[in-house]
């Protein structure tokens, strides 16, 4: 196959343009360009990152019986419903208010909320919470999932909000994360941009006692 020059993005969408003699042909075009383009566009992986993993294979450097690797990505989009917990997330986004749910029979207050008491099989009712609470356990993440690996180090904690009987898995932010301790009093802080998700708020240490 004769080497082609770069077919740039401004080319008409259907057909590749005829070779441009005016373009500076300093670099030879990558013969695997189409392969990279196919997977890069399909899975939103930058070509440079693909090259790091697959160049040897494409250049025919691997033996014919060697394991062959190929990119893939599993993905499903959602428009999901919070069901009977919907009000909890709407109040977070619109009113910076944290709600718990209280069982009329056993008086237990759930946070995360649940519309039904799992023990009494009774519908619960919403109660307003102050947003103050106590750290039960906290830790610093020095490593995390792909979705969070760029944010380390950060604090994950189980916090019990005042007036509730359960724990919340949440993040704490403080100037010196190494000073986070069980027993510490904290208060919920709402983010400026809120989306109706659980991370619309996080916790900071309460200053000046509880």
């Amino acid at each position: 196959m004769p080497p082609k020059t770069h077919a740039r993005r401004q080319a008409p969408p259907r057909k590749a343009p005829a070779r441009r003699t005016s373009a500076p042909a300093r670099k030879r075009t990558d013969p695997h360009r189409e392969w990279y383009k196919f997977f890069s566009e399909k899975y939103q992986i930058p070509v440079e990152q693909l090259k790091k993993e697959f160049q040897d294979e494409l250049d025919g450097k691997n033996p014919v019986d060697a394991p062959l690797e190929i990119p893939d990505r599993m993905e499903v989009f959602f428009k999901y419903s919070y069901g009977k917990q919907s009000r909890f997330f709407r109040e977070l986004r619109m009113h910076q208010q944290i709600l718990g749910s209280k069982c009329p029979q056993c008086r237990r207050v759930y946070l995360p909320p649940r519309a039904d008491c799992s023990l009494c099989y009774q519908p619960t009712s919403w109660v307003k919470l102050s947003g103050k609470g106590t750290v039960i356990a906290c830790t610093i993440q020095h490593f995390s999932t792909s979705a969070f690996i760029k944010k380390v180090p950060f604090i994950c904690a189980y916090i019990r909000l005042d007036g509730t009987d359960s724990l919340l898995m949440t993040n704490m932010e403080m100037d010196d994360p190494s000073r986070a301790r069980p027993g510490m009093r904290v208060k919920a802080e709402f983010r400026k941009n809120r989306y109706g998700i659980i991370t619309d708020f996080y916790f900071r240490p309460l200053t000046g006692g509880s």
């Binding site: 919070y82 917990q85 995360p112 830790t139 993440q141 490593f143 995390s144 999932t145 979705a147 969070f148 944010k151 950060f154 994950c156 919340l168 898995m169 949440t170 993040n171 998700i197 659980i198 991370t199």
Partner: peptide, 14 residues
């Protein structure tokens, strides 16, 4: 839990 636990960035280890 995808609604309450996953978004904090915790891991199995944490």
């Amino acid at each position: 839990d995808m609604t309450y636990d996953n978004p904090a960035g915790r891991t199995a280890a944490s």
